[in-house]
């Protein structure tokens, strides 16, 4: 796939390597993290960073470094699965409605308009306060928000392609709708889908972090960065590292994601709709 993007901007290359590093930490972290993330009193509470505890310890004497390393896996699993699910469903829906047009398109688009008009945070809080908080529910909620938004973007991209003559030729040949969708349309909207995935992953990290911060994410003592920021907040004067470390974790994921998306979008000739959420 790299052959598609012969020239990456330097910023995107650096961002890409940071993202790879995050991925490596998520995959292998538990193998080399010095302590268990949930075990309390592995050191003195509020210990400053030292060789024994690289990022110090928190109020319960847990090793912050180990918690951040384990948290990587939590945040990546949650945000990527939520984004993946949302983009997959949204892109399929967009592709189908964009190709089918007609009444199906009308109906789906009206439903999508309604879905988009619901403020994400409020519905998330409602759902979670009604059904209780669970990682699965969080993933489904985020995916639920992404489906209509991704569908709309992919539908617009599909509509542009559907009008092209090569689709007319395929229809005249009698190709099935499925064959047209995945052979003719998909290769032309895949760039849009990739950009959507990248940009929405960044939003998902922030959203899931915020939910964790508000206490609607995975329950304690799960090492989740948003939750960690919230818990460390009370002791920010005594143990700033317990807040700073997970916050830097979030930032070092979101900022490179955005830079990477930007570079990728430019290479694919797409524009990045930063203003959308």
């Amino acid at each position: 796939m790299l052959a598609w993007f012969p020239e990456w901007p330097l910023s995107a290359l650096i961002a890409g390597s940071i993202l790879v590093l995050h991925g490596v930490i998520a995959l292998t972290g538990p193998m080399w993290a010095p302590y268990s993330p949930t075990k309390i009193l592995v050191g003195q509470p509020f210990a400053s960073p030292s060789t024994a505890h690289l990022l110090g310890t928190d109020n319960l004497g847990r090793d912050v470094f180990s918690r951040v390393v384990y948290g990587e896996r939590t945040v990546l699993t949650l945000s990527l699965s939520a984004t993946g699910l949302g983009v997959l469903c949204g892109a399929s829906l967009g592709l189908v409605t964009g190709y089918a047009r007609g009444w199906l398109d009308e109906v789906v688009m009206r439903i999508i308009d309604i879905m988009i008009s619901i403020p994400p945070l409020i519905l998330a809080l409602l759902v979670i306060s009604a059904l209780g908080s669970s990682p699965l529910l969080l993933v489904l909620t985020v995916a639920f928000f992404y489906v209509p938004r991704v569908a709309r973007v992919v539908r617009a991209a599909t509509l542009r392609v559907v009008m092209e003559d090569f689709v007319t030729i395929a229809r005249a040949r009698g190709e099935s709708a499925w064959s047209i969708a995945h052979k003719e349309l998909l290769p032309n909207v895949i760039g849009t889908v990739l950009v959507e995935f990248a940009i929405r992953s960044g939003y998902a990290v922030i959203f899931i972090g915020s939910m964790g911060f508000l206490g609607f994410g995975p329950p304690p003592p799960t090492p989740e960065w948003g939750l960690m920021v919230n818990q460390g907040r009370e002791y920010i004067v005594t143990a700033p590292w317990a807040v700073v470390a997970p916050a830097v974790g979030i930032a070092s994921l979101v900022v490179p994601l955005n830079l990477f998306t930007d570079g990728m979008a430019r290479l694919l000739g797409q524009s990045v709709p930063w203003e959308r959420h």
Partner: peptide, 10 residues
């Protein structure tokens, strides 16, 4: 069709 730019899948 008329437009050779649009009639081949890029």
């Amino acid at each position: 069709l008329q437009n050779p730019d649009a009639s081949l899948n890029p």
